[in-house]
């Protein structure tokens, strides 16, 4: 019993909480040498890896080729590789806090990754840019339509009929 208590204390000191699953986000950069055909395979393997550790995927984005803001290097089998572009992707998932360390150890050994970042996050969508773009574009046309409708209302039907008749007669 005492051992269990000490273990729990040690875990608390290390910042590990033995409560339920938490929401994490894994952002990663894959090496650009992966071909377009193999990319879905690598992406699928990553998803399977998360699921194998008892994770549940909340949302994710397929890796896309992006230019990097600076050169990154990675040493694989005593060869230094420099990259100025990479596949960037992210996955949001729920996982037990103890399992996340095992996942990190596993990803450390993966040769396809240049870098990765595991963060605590929230379940809700956190990307804000797209939300604003939609909000502004949706509001403006509605205002224009309402003003147009007000202008149309006072037009008399008889006047319109007369105008049409005049046009037809010509």
């Amino acid at each position: 019993m005492q051992d269990v208590g000490d273990g729990a204390k040690n875990n608390n000191l290390l910042g590990i909480d033995e409560q339920g699953p938490k929401v994490y986000e894994l952002g990663y950069l894959l090496v650009p040498t992966i071909s377009d055909e193999n990319l879905p395979v690598v992406y699928g393997n990553l998803k399977e890896l998360v699921l194998s550790f008892g994770g549940e995927i909340v949302s994710d984005e397929i890796p896309k080729m992006i230019p990097l803001a600076y050169f990154m290097q990675k040493v694989t089998s005593n060869v230094r590789n420099k990259f100025n572009k990479a596949y960037f992707g992210w996955t949001k998932f729920t996982m037990n806090s103890l399992k996340i360390l095992e996942l990190k150890k596993h990803l450390d050994l993966d040769a396809n990754f240049i870098r990765f970042l595991i963060l605590k996050t929230v379940k809700e969508n956190t990307i804000a840019v797209k939300r604003f773009m939609r909000g502004e574009s949706y509001k403006r046309p509605i205002l224009k339509r309402s003003t147009e409708n007000e202008n149309i209302m006072p037009i008399n039907k008889e006047e319109i009929d007369k105008e049409i008749d005049a046009l037809v007669s010509i």
């Binding site: 952002g27 992006i66 803001a69």
Partner: peptide, 11 residues
């Protein structure tokens, strides 16, 4: 700082 680490923003 996270964006810089992943090469999305420059240092």
């Amino acid at each position: 700082k996270h964006a810089r680490f992943l090469g999305l923003l420059p240092f």
